[in-house]
Amino acid sequence: MSEKLNLQMVTPYKKVLAEEVDEITAPGTVGEFGVLPGHTPLLTTLKIGELSYRKGTEVFHVAVNWGYVEVEDDNVSVLVETAEPADEIDLERARAALGRAEEALRQLSPEDKDFLAMQAALERALIRIQVAGRKGGQGH
């Protein structure tokens, strides 16, 4: 058993990360979970949320969209539709998106077709803001 996890994160547009890390925390559909070296094979879906990984004492945060994670033999593959590391998030844009989504939600009733989509947009914006707030934040 190796001491490190081999983390790979890919989106349809590019490979975001390929790194050796010590610990991963990910937002699973049924709840947040952590992965340490020696984890049992696992396949799970992710929801919109914040994925963080620890390298030594440094902690990095990534805002992820819908996707899933496969853990096998200390290889962790994260396949997500979008992934934005904390230092790449445009806080202004995220705030604007949040405003737009809130505005749209006020005008829509829960029966509307777009309601779920807007709700997801709202969630994404919130997560982005939350993750951006962790910029350089260590030891969380």
Binding site: T29, V30, P41, L42, L43, T44, T45
Partner: peptide
């Protein structure tokens, strides 16, 4: 290897 599925195999 047998996977642990979350939420369930069918859903995944």
């Amino acid at each position: 290897a047998t996977y642990l599925y979350e939420p369930g195999r069918g859903e995944v």
